[in-house]
Amino acid sequence: MQNAERKPRFKWHILVFLAPAVLVYTAIMIIPIFDTLRMSFFADVDNNQVFVGWQNFKMLFGDERWADHFWNALKNNSWFFMIHMLVQNPVGIMLAAILSSPKLRFAAAYRTVVIVPAILSFVIVGFAWKLILSPLWGIAPWLLDSVGLKSLFAPWLGKEEYALTTLSLISVWQFIGIPMLLIYAALLSIPEEVLEAGECDGLTGFSAFWKIKLPLILPSIGIISILTFVGNFNAFDLIYAAQGALAGPNYSTDILGTFMYRTFFGNQLQLGDVNMGATIASAMFGIILVGVCLYLFAIQRRLRRYQF
């Protein structure tokens, strides 16, 4: 600090250090997002792009040829998200609570096992589960048969009423390690003194978790919820790998991502429609934006943080 008396100069190094991130982010995120939004206001007329205002959106939400598929996809997507919130996150928290128990042996091994599916490719997960559940060559019917419960087996991925739930649970299986790790880290950061103080007041075991640990990890649960929300409404890979672009049977596993893919890139004799595809992508962007904003303003601000 020998030059502290000098006039403050423009700090070029800040720009230099920011530049790589800003440039890369702009090139691969910001420009494409705005270009997608732009494309959703155009339509193809005789191979020329013509500005049509809100017409694409009106069609997507109002014209039954598009709207039926859109609302169906949105409904399926919400169910997909619900299953994650109801199964993935509570079970993840439970696993983290068990893992953080000092009495548990081989904790590191369990942790690894639970996190492994999350680093597998969607294609591998989709294909492996398709094989496991296959009524022809799968081990699921064979396993059920060996305990005399073959009657419980159904071709889950081929039945309209089960397919989406099955795929949601496969996705839960794949990603359960992520909430577990985040909560696990949050649990470890709770100081012993707080728990010991609780113990002096008679809080042990389950009630200690419920009354001390859970309130302290609420911010982490909030973060996980919003990550799940964004991840689920952007989901595409697993459904595509397991069911193909048509998201069968009878569109029962069609979520916004697959609907967008099918529209944008086309399918079989259906030619790709970049403008309607962009419109769906914009709608997805809007849905996620609204969801994240709601969370930030309604929930995040009310969460209390504790400093130790």
Binding site: L136, P155, W156, G158
Partner: peptide, 16 residues
């Protein structure tokens, strides 16, 4: 069609 044909894919049919 075979048991569970609802979940049978095209390669499954060929192999069957």
């Amino acid at each position: 069609l075979g048991d569970g044909y609802e979940a049978q894919t095209y390669p499954d049919s060929q192999n069957l």
